[in-house]
Design a binder for these strands. Structure first.
Lengths: 253, 253
DNA sequence: CAAGAAGTTGTTAATAAATAACAAACATTC
DNA sequence: GAATGTTTGTTATTTATTAACAACTTCTTG
């Protein structure tokens, strides 16, 4: 188990933790015949890389590696705006209703806020949303089928579309990369979300104000196709009134 | 946030961690206006209950509660037998082929062994299998749809059957709770696995030797329906020859 | 109701772990 | 081969964890 090499030790530590889940620093140091200080430094690197969790005196493997990391990184950004959007979106859903939830950071905040709901069914192709809701006792999560995509920790492919085609929920809550007045609601990846819009009655777009008035690669739908746009109070009055000419807009505090 | 009550503090701490994911001891102690020592003791209780993970100076919510814990507990048991079965099953799969993988501990070892394969497509309804394979670069995982079931960390419901009905893989690798000579291959929960058997050409049953000759609640299929039974060398010669009268049996070393 | 048992909590002291700072060893680059 | 950067080990310092005890509450029981 002892690599004479220097830096492949890092991956060996990860492999070691994959097997045993946890290991103490003393244990790891002994395995590789190095000082505990070295292991401490290694573990710190692995923590930064999102590969392991530090526990007192040792370390533990981090599941959903990579995914978890970007999840938390991104969750930090704009988090106040997004969490207020999340709460507001959650308030639109009544107990007993069903919701289709998009993959993405803003919708993740919606998932977070939905945890306190009772008797709600959430359809999603995002594993992050699933994780967020597993600890919620009274929320049922139904995952669509699909091919796992590590980069965004969700499912894609025709199986997603197929699964969604047999669903008709009360509300669809989806995010966007940009909202353009001329080109409509835009996303970076058109595959996933397309079918989603037909999977429910009320279509709610959740998007932070910084994205309104910008553009992205693909057009998902028109602004008029959204029954409600939910954004934060960073939106300028002009933009808001212009948006309101087309559809209903709610500003979350 | 400060409960005057004593022990409901425990669940409040969990709630707090569900929101913020992590919290320091000082922070928690201040929130509840108690000493850090009290919080330390609380956290220790929660760690024992599997609700939180202890990190230096604080705590973190345990995701996949229950699932993760029992998963590793069970993984330990029989692990040599099961990992040899896993390697042998993995060897049956050629690079480029597709596999349907059941949920369960034995099949999890198969997943683990499949990580080194290239260009393999794995269909599964087990999130544990997905987790096991997310770090594998050259293995594509396709999840069926379904309702998330926390107890076994997998998906169930008619969506699973529906997803599987549109799949025809090269090999189906499935586990069982018991193999009875009179009643055939038996499981504890008939819902999940039924459709799976029709989702591929070659049907391989992976089962540790201790389960052969026992019985469980539901009959899944007959022994003759398996193209191959893969078990460990704990099987007795009599049982082995008796099984071989019905179908092909491979013993993993 | 008083005595006592069982449980919580806070304080203190002792131990263990984490951090920071520095110096030695090694590899790299120019 | 001198300069630079990286990795590692050692030490001292700070911080966190544990253990032990005393004060207090609560609940039981005679």
């Amino acid at each position: 188990m002892n690599d004479v090499t220097e830096r492949s030790r890092l991956s060996s530590i990860v492999e070691m933790l994959k097997v045993n889940t946890t290991a103490s620093i003393a244990e790891i140091a002994e395995t590789f015949r190095v000082s505990q200080m070295t292991i401490r430094r290694d573990l710190q690197k692995l923590v930064e890389a999102g590969q392991v969790i530090r526990i007192p005196g040792g370390a533990r493997i981090e599941y959903w590696r990579g995914a978890e990391r970007t999840f938390f990184e991104r969750l930090e950004k704009m988090s106040h705006a997004k969490s207020s959007i999340g709460s507001a979106a959650s308030a639109l859903v009544r107990d007993g209703e069903s919701v289709v939830l998009d993959s993405g950071t803003t919708t993740l905040h919606v998932a977070r806020a939905l945890r306190t709901r009772r008797n709600v069914v959430v359809f999603t192709f995002s594993l992050t949303v699933l994780e967020e809701l597993t600890s919620a006792e009274h929320v049922r999560v139904e995952l669509t089928g699909g091919v796992y995509r590590p980069s965004s920790h969700d499912l894609i492919g025709q199986a997603v579309a197929k699964s969604l085609s047999s669903i008709y929920a009360d509300t669809v809550i989806f995010g966007a990369a940009a909202v353009s007045f001329t080109r409509g609601v835009m996303v970076h990846d058109p595959d996933a979300q397309c079918e989603m819009l037909n999977a429910g009655k009320r279509k709610v777009l959740v998007v932070d104000s910084s994205k309104i008035g910008t553009e992205a690669t693909y057009r998902l739908c028109g602004i008029e196709d959204c029954d409600l746009i939910l954004t934060d109070n960073g939106i300028s009055p002009e933009t808001l009134s212009r948006l309101r000419q087309t559809t209903q807009v709610q500003v979350a505090e």
